[in-house]
Each structure stands twice: as C-alpha cells, then as structure tokens.
C-alpha cells in the first residue's frame, strides 16, 4: 500500500503557501492578509503574543476553520477545494493535546493509524520510540502528565509521515529535558526527512535555538519575517532589564541615575534598571567604584513586545 508518494520535497521548496488570509469573527477582523510560506526542511517559528492570531492561522491551514478570503495551498492542493489530498500531507497538533482519555496511548495511536492506508503497527511502534513514550504507551491517557500528552500529540502528528507538521505551542507543559528532546526531534525531522515544520510560540527564547526562520504576527498581521540569525543580528542592540542585588539599594539607585519611571526602580533589595546589554559592565564598575557590594547581577530578557517591534522595524523583512 502506498499513499500519494510525497514528492520528497527538495529542501527549501515551498510546501505550504498561505496567501492573503483574512478571517473575521463576526465584525472583528482577526487575520488581515496573512501570508507566508513553509519550506521543506525548515523549522519556521511562528511568533506573536497571545491573541495575535497564531492559533487561528493554524486552524485555517489545517482546515478546521473557513477563511473569509485568501487561500492555503499544501503541495499545490487547495485546503478547501481539495481537502482530502491537501490534509493528507499535514500532521498537526492544535492547542492542547487531547486524546480519548479512557484508552491507552497505543489504542489512541492505532485509531489514527487506521485512518491512513500505509501506517502499520511497526510504524506506530517506531513513532512511539521516536517520541520517547515506549514505557508508558500501554497506560491509559488519563494517567499521563501534560508533557506525556504533548509527546503523544507529536506522535499522532508524524504517524503518517506528513510533508508538513503544524505545532501550536508544543513546548507548553514540557520540562527542560522534554523541550530539549522536542528540539532534537524536530531538527531531525526537518534535516533528515525534509519535513516542513511550523512551530508557534509566544516565547521567542523557546524558538531561538530551534528555528531557521521566523514569522512574527501581531494583531492579526505579519509584521516581520526572515532568517532567525539575520533577524537577531538586525534587531541590533537590545534593551534589557537588569536586576542588581546590592548591599545598599537606595545608594545604588542614586548612583545608577535615580528613580526614573520605566527605566530604573527599587524592588526591595534589588535595583532594576533598563539598559543596553553593553552598558552592564560600566554600571557594575560604577557601583563597585563607590564601594557598594554587588551581590548579583541578573539580566532578564528584553520585553517581547520590544523585540517584535524592533524586528518589524529592523529590516528583517524579505
């Protein structure tokens, strides 16, 4: 039994093409002319704050929602006009990974396997090992942690060797080890099997090490798109918040420029200052120079909103 042979896509070839997607909920427009593509062999980061339309976009690509305008093509098949052939090439995990909780993980996977002509028992076993669930696959899903359900969610999505993998916030509920496993798995699916992978997240930091490219969504509009590396570089100096834990906080605040709303403030024993990363050493030096004991210096990441904006303006657009 063979399926439509997945024209094992040439790396870099466009697999999913989203064009001028418009979606309204009543009179509210939640997606404005969203357009981008997912290419074979790449992991595309889909970034945006909560409510920016990431999940809605993914639902439209997966055919769960109708779009009001625009179209989605998967290997040339329109997702509405030619739903069955288009969706046969898609594996997806939209929102929380929900399963039939009264069945075992394996029974769940077998249900989905039965829906594809070329997925047999050995493929199911192979996928189970691949997501690292072999020890618990015969337990009922109701006993699974969120992390385990995420793994099972990935398993059902890759069961039929789709050309495209759509993952909505897959890192939710994963522990650091789980996140590392996920990263390795997705990398190998992209690099070795040439899958086109879309991973959404509201945390840029989650995606930095995983993605080849990113698309940034904000209020239903694509505000930036480009290479991960060049985008990070193009975003230029990034302001971040640094928390200085010091011996005499009040004095330190004075040395660092006094209380300035939005820039520096006192938080108990720590002074929190917003500055460029490059300025941190000189600030430490200033404090040490007047004899203040610096107990710790903890940079927190820049606010996401700022980085999105910088990316949008920073020329990271094709």
């Amino acid at each position: 039994m063979t399926m439509d042979p997945v024209a094992v896509s040439v790396k870099g070839e466009s697999v999913v093409r989203v064009e001028r997607l418009v979606k309204r909920f009543g009179s509210r427009v939640v997606l404005h002319d969203v357009g981008f593509e997912i290419r074979a062999g790449e992991v595309l980061g889909f970034i945006g704050p909560n409510g920016s339309g990431k999940t809605t976009t993914i639902r439209c690509i997966a055919g769960l929602m109708r779009m009001d305008a625009g179209n989605v093509r998967i290997l040339g098949h329109d997702v509405h006009a030619d739903f069955e052939r288009a969706i046969a090439q898609v594996g997806c995990l939209v929102e929380n990974p929900e399963f039939y909780k009264y069945m075992t993980g394996l029974t769940n996977l077998k249900l989905f396997a039965r829906m594809y002509p070329d997925v047999d028992a050995s493929r199911v076993d192979q996928v189970v090992v691949r997501v690292g669930l072999e020890n618990r696959i015969r337990s009922r899903v109701k006993t699974y942690s969120l992390g385990m359900r995420q793994r099972l969610g990935i398993a059902q999505a890759i069961l039929h060797r789709p050309a495209v993998l759509l993952l909505d916030e897959p890192a939710n509920g994963l522990d650091p080890e789980g996140i590392r496993d996920l990263r390795l798995l997705l990398r190998s699916l992209a690099d070795e099997e040439g899958m086109a992978i879309l991973v959404s997240s509201h945390l840029l930091s989650e995606l930095e090490q995983l993605c080849d490219r990113v698309v940034v969504l904000r209020s239903g509009r694509v505000i930036g798109e480009g290479d991960m590396a060049s985008m990070l570089a193009a975003s230029g100096p990034v302001a971040c918040e640094v928390a200085f834990t010091v011996g005499s906080p009040a004095h330190a605040l004075e040395i660092l420029g006094g209380e300035r709303p939005g820039l520096s403030r006192l938080e108990g024993e720590t002074v929190v200052v917003t500055c460029l990363r490059e300025e941190v050493p000189e600030k430490v030096a200033a404090l040490v120079g007047v004899g203040i004991a610096v107990l710790s210096v903890v940079p927190t990441t820049a606010s996401l909103e700022d980085r999105y904006l910088q990316m949008a303006g920073g020329g990271g657009v094709e």
């Binding site: 055919g63 769960l64 739903f83 069955e84 969706i87 929102e95 929900e98 989905f112 594809y116």
Partner: peptide, 14 residues
C-alpha cells in the same frame, strides 16, 4: 467537549 474533534477533522476525510 474533549477536544479530540481536532484530531479527527484533520484527517484525509471530508
């Protein structure tokens, strides 16, 4: 209600 409908409708069946 269980959310499994998404797993069901994203299969190659109308």
């Amino acid at each position: 209600t269980g959310g499994t409908i998404r797993l069901l409708l994203t299969r190659p069946f109308r």
